[in-house]
């Protein structure tokens, strides 16, 4: 029985805490000296394929030992206390392969029992979880007859049915159309907000992480690129984006604007077409004033000017330069 252990870990500050976590496969470092703190809420684990997301999840689940470093999940050491820890974890795998002939309710109930629920409680909770994910009417259907979207919901239902403290979801929107994806993201958000279940969401789609996550851990080739609250990593920054309109009688106007801004010691990025310019400086108001002066001096015409927003992509671009 693990109820005593549950009582001991409810108030942990970080859901996951890793220090110098390194996992090495032969010559290749899958995780390279990660210092990660995952707080409560929905955390996006982002990175391209091969960035180390799945390896990180398997270490968190206690299924893969770290080559060096330490990791703590809900106050447990996953390697030494893996079985007790996994009673409190839910996991939704990336693959869509499920037992075809098994009804969804039996599948969710069985996994809830394996995660420690008593039989009668497991049946009720399986039903509740399937209703929550929108499959209440479909719960007695065989998994093999379900669409990819429904299977993704079943995977979410089995992950939450045993009332976990932390759910690990590996690419939960993979294979979904835009409408299904929106619904799945809303469900994940609801699970965290209404039932206080922390979620670690692995995804290579940065846009969906920006939409629902409170925190972000960004990995690239096993290294930590950035981590922290989403609002600190994305949002308005000290720059503007200007879209200029080419004027036939002043063909050099756009180039003159760019040269003027560069002379003012501002960072300028011009797109391939040449009329969209990102200008970054120490202060957004100063940048805006400099752009205004440069446009006036060159006699250029402005189509649109907006405050520049940092996006998650910028984290990865920064890490590659």
């Amino acid at each position: 029985m693990v109820s005593g252990l549950v009582a001991g870990m409810v108030d942990v500050v970080s859901v996951i805490s890793a220090r110098q976590l390194t996992v090495q496969f032969g010559e290749q470092r899958a995780l390279d000296a990660l210092d990660v703190d995952v707080p409560h809420g929905v955390t996006g684990l982002v990175g391209a394929n091969g960035a180390g997301k799945t390896t990180f999840m398997s270490v968190v689940l206690g299924l893969r030992p770290a080559t060096s470093g330490e990791v703590e999940v809900l106050g447990f050491d996953p390697r030494r206390e893996g079985a007790a820890l996994r009673c409190l974890l839910g996991y939704g795998p990336e693959h869509h392969v499920l037992p075809d002939e098994m009804p969804a309710s039996d599948f969710v109930k069985h996994l809830a029992e394996v995660r420690g629920m008593p039989g009668t409680e497991a049946r009720g909770r399986a039903s509740d979880a399937l209703w929550l994910v929108g499959l209440g009417e479909e719960r007695f259907r065989a998994l093999g007859t379900m669409s990819t979207g429904q299977r993704q919901r079943v995977k979410l239902a089995q992950a939450i049915a045993a009332d976990p403290r932390l759910v690990l979801l590996d690419e939960p929107t993979d294979g979904l159309d835009p409408v299904q994806r929106d619904e799945m993201l809303a469900l994940i958000r609801q699970i965290s907000a209404e039932y206080e279940i922390d979620v670690l969401l692995s995804s290579h789609l940065l846009e969906e992480v920006e939409r629902i996550c409170d925190n972000v851990v960004a990995l690239d080739a096993g290294r930590l690129v950035a981590q922290g609250p989403l609002e600190s990593l994305v949002g308005a920054d000290a720059g503007v984006v200007v879209e200029l309109i080419e004027v036939a009688e002043r063909p050099a106007a756009v180039s003159q604007v760019v040269e003027s801004l560069v002379r003012a010691d501002l960072e300028v990025h011009r797109d391939a077409v040449g009329t969209r310019i990102e200008v970054i400086g120490p202060d957004a108001d100063l940048v805006a004033d400099a752009v205004r002066d440069a446009v006036v001096d060159a006699g250029a015409r402005v189509g649109r000017i907006v405050r520049r927003r940092r996006r998650l992509e910028d984290l990865f671009e920064g890490s590659q330069t």
Partner: peptide, 13 residues
């Protein structure tokens, strides 16, 4: 009842 927290004991391994 809907989805709710579980306060009982888990059976472990």
């Amino acid at each position: 009842r809907g989805y709710r927290r579980f306060e009982g004991q888990r059976s472990g391994v």
